[in-house]
Write a protein that binds this DNA or RNA. Structure first.
Length: 494
RNA sequence: GGUCUCGUGGCCGAGCGGCUAGGCACCGGUCUGCAAAACCGUAUACUCCGGUUCGAAUCCGGACGAGACCUCCA
């Protein structure tokens, strides 16, 4: 089966076909850097990280662009007191707006690295592309699809619908937008039509982030940066545009308008949207104040957290569900994820140190299982990046590995099959799912535990089991687990 | 109010018309000084009511429930 993706634009699973034969252009909406990154950000970045990794695994050369929105945009566009979010944060924290943006950009990047997310090929900043945005806006005006009022520029939706189909992505129709109109809020509005959206906003004197433009001093509208930057680095149209579900409307709908408005071409062939992380069934969001930041998860410092959860646990937790479904946060499911992750990680280590004994007897049944499981790994990922199914397949591998290394009656398979199993497991576990071992044990710890294991062994030899158990128990309290193997050797797990 | 999505066993979560998803937890067994791990085995499902079909968790209609978007949001 070839790669199929669920295209939110058409609402269907489609065969994925890239524009260039062996290359893919992918753009994903990154964060607005005015606050701590939370679980929701992790979901989006992990989703597209795995998509990026899998496309690369399939042999595509991927140019992956993920922006940083470092202009805060308005808290409330309809209200004159609407304040730029980054500017507001800067006022509260008594910093330069760019200090705020820089700080949260740094925090975001650190968290991404902790989650083993590969850096995008290009990570453009909105403020670094003001000329490009102005240029794009000018093109739209030139094409008669935007108008200037009082130093601000708005997209002319009414003119747009004369030429193009509006609401393709969000399924919204203009009549609906009219019906939902907040006419009562529009007293001071400059827009000709309430569905029009800002491309450029005039800045007041005390607005801290502002730039010179053909329309006077101001700052760009929220949606235009993605159009300007994606077209600059990926061309038009490009292959994949990703982001959270909540961005479908108005943000992505506006991007389609802007792209058609400026270039007469739709921006992208495949729209992919990840679903939300919920907390007690409610969307986790900054604006709702019910979010848990990534650093809180890593350290366990949040009243809702029973314990700290490692970055890989978070990553695994998210990958256990398909990206298109919501996932509900709970301590129970995080702990379950932690246990499951440990199992797969241990099987991986066992396999890593396994070498097939030279033998002529080969278990046909197991041989077949290996091939089938390899197959199901690809099937899972080709089916719209179904990581939940992939993980189920990896547990299949785990079972096979334990059969091979059974201390009593190990099953034999051919060296070729072992290699196949090993390569596939490594590819999918490490390269595609991006799971990395977390406890790089320092040599000192290894030596120290070696001493304790030796002392315990002496106690065991003397049949002083209470002493032996005491050592094991005390280590257990420190989170170190001792396991006595069949061969008499003891191993430890942090 | 409008648009849309979803409702699976104790918990999480695949499934898109017939064939064991998987994980976590639980229980029984093998192994072990005891644990742990591993292995073998048992159990627990498809919100409700109609319909289509030889056959439905899966398709259609309805009810109830939950959520998302319609303002900034991953």
């Amino acid at each position: 089966m070839s790669l199929h993706v669920y295209n939110t634009l058409t609402g269907k699973k489609e065969v994925f076909k890239s524009i260039a034969k062996n290359a893919v252009g992918m753009y994903v909406c990154g964060p607005t850097v005015y606050g701590e990154p939370h679980l929701g950000h992790a979901r989006s970045s992990i989703t597209f990280d795995v998509i990026y990794r899998y496309l690369t695994h399939l042999g595509y050369k991927v140019r992956y662009v993920r922006n940083i929105t470092d202009v805060g945009h308005l808290e409330d566009e309809h209200n004159e007191t609407g304040e730029d979010k980054i500017v507001k944060k800067a006022r509260i924290e008594q910093l330069e707006p760019m200090e705020v943006a820089q700080h949260y950009t740094n925090v975001y990047r650190q968290a991404m690295h902790a989650l083993n997310i590969i850096d995008p090929s290009i990570e453009p900043l909105a403020t670094g592309h003001i000329p490009e945005q102005i240029e794009t806006i000018a093109k739209i005006i030139e094409n008669g699809l935007a108008y200037e009022v009082n130093g601000s520029v708005y997209f002319d939706v009414q003119a747009y619908v004369q030429r193009y189909h509006y609401g393709q992505l969000s399924g919204r129709v203009l009549e609906e937008l009219l019906a939902a109109s907040r006419a009562d809020l529009e007293g001071t509005n400059e827009k000709k039509f309430h569905a029009d959206f800002a491309l450029w906003k005039k800045a007041g004197k005390d607005h801290l982030m502002q730039w010179q433009s053909p329309w006077g001093r101001g700052f760009p509208g929220w949606h235009i940066e993605c159009t300007a930057m994606s077209s600059k680095y990926l061309g038009i149209p490009f292959d994949i545009h990703g982001g959270g579900m909540d961005l479908k409307f108005p943000h992505h709908e506006a991007e389609i308008c802007q792209s058609l408005g400026a270039y007469d071409k739709p921006p992208v062939n495949y729209w992919l949207h990840n679903n939300m992380v919920t907390l007690n069934g409610q969307k986790m969001a900054k604006s709702k104040g019910n979010f848990i930041t990534l650093n809180e998860l890593f350290s366990g410092s949040h009243s809702l957290l029973q314990k700290a959860y490692s970055p890989m646990t978070i990553r695994f937790f998210i990958l256990q569900a398909h990206y298109g479904s919501t996932i509900d946060f709970s301590n129970e499911s995080l702990i379950a994820a932690e246990n499951a992750l440990t199992k797969l990680e241990e099987s991986y280590k066992v396999l890593d140190s396994y070498s097939a004994a030279a033998t002529s007897s080969v278990d046909e049944e197991t041989e077949k299982e290996v091939l089938e499981t390899v197959e199901s790994c690809y099937e899972a990922m080709n089916d719209d990046f179904n990581t939940a199914k992939l993980i189920a397949a990896l547990f299949g591998f785990s079972k096979i590995i334990h059969k091979l290394t059974d201390p009593v009656r190990p099953v034999q398979i051919s060296a070729k099959s072992v290699e196949k199993l090993s390569d596939t497991y490594r590819s999918f576990w490490r390269d595609v799912l991006g799971m990395r071992p977390e406890n790089a044990n320092s040599e000192k710890i290894d030596d120290l535990l070696g001493i304790l294991i030796e002392l315990r062994q002496q106690a065991k030899d003397d049949k002083n089991y209470s002493h032996a158990d005491l050592i094991r128990q005390k280590l257990e309290h420190l989170g170190i687990q001792l396991k006595d193997g069949k061969d008499g050797a003891t191993s430890y797990f942090l």
